[in-house]
Design a protein around this nucleic acid. Structure first.
Lengths: 243, 243
DNA sequence: GAGTGGTCTAGACCACCCC
DNA sequence: GGGTGGTCTAGACCACTCT
């Protein structure tokens, strides 16, 4: 098996990562499913088990797959993950973590404004769904979210569907539209509360809020969600780690 | 080599990670140094090269070591890293990244207040150094930092030393005190500018600022720095990624 | 050419899970 | 007991860097 024919050498395990990713994009294995065993994949791709292992190791490090000793390797899912604090970085300063409750404000069909359109690789004016909601911790409204997703990828989305679903929004996107969020980038600023968010979050006008702009990506680094969260950070913080 | 004697089984490569970390703590290899080759380490630890590889792979994934094909494996350093954006997450919304300039305001010896003391595993009132500085982007002051470090680990620190040093603060800590920062946790809030920071950052009183509290750790997950940054985020953002 | 890390293989055996 | 992932080894060969 001579793949060492440079130039532009690409390791075997890297090519296998791509093949696995393509199967994920194609929906051959869906979030929560077990993928074939390492031995099966090795024989399918005609490589050694060690090479498959390395490919899976990297996908697991990216939180795309999850390994469970003795059971198998699974497609990461927002539905079954314990403590879905993975994309929710707001937490109490002290005390136990409590999952927020969500109040849906509106779901509308809109034309994408320039900002979110370009970040979602859409043309300005493309059709999107705009979701507005309020997240509350301990009964107190803390985060006002405005969420844009391309209408073409989320055909038929409406407020009743969301209201009838119990679970996180990303878990809803997975089960109803087969779109799994695997990565996100956020830009954070401190801003003054405007009239809308002041009323929703029960704060005075011009109170400082955290403004968290996010772009989330699915398999193959395809951007599929833009959102802006306005967050009242009294007794709460946005938590990050770096290394 | 039978290490598979459960209970409380610990893989060999994990034990070797610990041994390498201990050498880093002991200062056997310092930031910027090359560590011995994989073959040398394998014979020193009496394991196969593959096992050493796995240990080094994980330390490299944690940004503690840096592999360079054909050259060797090196201890990560804040001095020689290209684009030390690793612990500086504030960037312009658009345009090219420009490294900020630092203006040292004061270096004083203080008694640790309760907050930073407990986060640094010190008793309240322990001796610390308090560094205050102002970071400017494009000539405009953007971040007011207050930094606490234990006096016992930073013996002899004074403002002249910092002023005479060109380079980042963490690179200074490395070269003068042998303390390498490898990981940090941050808690972010939106707050109103008080009188001190309003003047320093040239903003009105009560303007919203980002308040970024950080605890930074060195080898062995030992906390050695607490800092609070107040940041004026007009045209700038705090950038994060998650997966 | 010598030395380093990087890739790939084949095989043995262990830890874990479930039937 | 049989299947899964997890660890460890030994060896071959490639890619990169420096001398």
């Amino acid at each position: 098996m001579n793949i060492h024919s440079s130039p532009s050498f690409r390791p075997l395990y890297d090519q296998i990562k791509i093949l696995i990713t393509q199967s994920l994009i194609a929906g051959e294995w869906r979030p929560g499913d077990a993928i074939p065993s390492e031995i099966d994949l090795a024989s399918r791709f005609k490589v050694s088990q060690g090479t498959v292992r390395k490919a899976i190791d990297e996908l697991a490090a990216e939180n795309i797959l999850i390994r469970r000793q003795g059971k198998g390797t699974f497609v990461a899912s927002h539905s079954q993950e314990r403590a879905s604090t993975r994309f929710l970085r707001i937490a109490r300063d002290e005390g136990v973590f409590e999952y927020p409750t969500s109040q849906l404000l509106s779901v509308t069909r809109e034309r994408a404004p320039e900002g979110s359109a370009s970040l979602l690789d859409l043309r300005t004016g493309a059709s999107i769904f705009c979701i507005k909601r309020l997240l509350s911790f301990e009964g107190i409204p803390r985060i006002f979210d405005e969420i844009h997703v391309p209408a073409v990828s989320f055909k038929g989305l409406d407020d009743a569907m969301i209201r009838n679903y119990t679970g996180s929004l990303y878990s809803f996107f997975e089960s109803h539209f087969g779109i799994a969020m695997i990565r996100a980038e956020e830009h954070i600023k401190a801003v003054k509360a405007g009239p809308v968010e002041a009323e929703l979050l029960h704060v005075n006008l011009d109170q400082p809020l955290l403004r968290v702009d996010r772009v989330a990506f699915t398999y193959g680094d395809r951007p599929v969600e833009w959102r802006r969260g306005l967050c009242h950070t009294e007794r709460f913080s946005y938590v990050t780690e770096m290394s």
